[in-house]
Amino acid sequence: MPILEEYRLTDRVAIVAGDGTLDSNVFTPYLAEALAEAGARVFVAARSADVMDESVRRANAIGGEAHGILCDHTNEQDVEMVFTEALNRFGRVDILVNNLRTEFGKSFDQVTVDEYETVMGRNVRSVFLMCRAAGTRMMAQGRGRIVNIISGLAERGLWNSAAYCASQGAVLQLTKALALEWGRHNIRVNAIGTGWFSSEELPLEEAQKELLVRFIPLRRKGHPRDIAPALVYLTSDSCDYTTGQPIYIDGGLMAHP
């Protein structure tokens, strides 16, 4: 199968950060696998051992070289440890992928300060710490690619989701601002926006009984595999003139009124 050389990540070193609720956690192993399949060496930094193990397993199974570490991405010392360990093992960090999305739904008048701060901490503070730690190294290397996985709720609202929406909007703005600030250092910062996703493989007819599925112009929920090739492009050298942008892969949701 002819595949453009431009999509290869040979000898690149990628850190994949994963944390979140069930639906967002399922992405991390597929992201690690896609980068490994394109030729990158992958260092997985996950909050949960299950996510870390599955990510490393998938990346190695496709012929990659992957290692994992457990960490709390909201903790500055932990984040430093992730980069120190990755550099010890692989010598450099070319790519950072943040899949740090803890979903949270609750009537806004009932949301406690603790809940709000937890959501903002695990979704925004974590991305801030990971990007800052990566940017320092990438500026020294003179190149880097950062991709933040976000939700369409970075731009759209949803009942009972104000805190989560605010956190996604914050990461989108972080993406745009860092793209400008680090553009001249040959660092590209982009985001992939998801819609309604599931890793369950339901028969289409069964899935379309759900009102939410019929609302999606493509009439199916996405699967983590649907975003993997876009991630490979955004982390490759050929993604040089695209920066500060979200790419939504959501079956057409964002075109919906």
Binding site: K176, T242, G244
Partner: peptide, 27 residues
């Protein structure tokens, strides 16, 4: 590479969207 991605089955779940390639201008 963007045209190839959008023409390929790798973008099958992408619909109604845009990929902006502008050196960061619109950001």
């Amino acid at each position: 590479p963007i045209a190839v991605f959008l023409a390929s089955n790798a973008s099958d779940y992408m619909n109604g969207e845009m990929i902006i390639m502008d050196g960061g201008g619109l950001a």
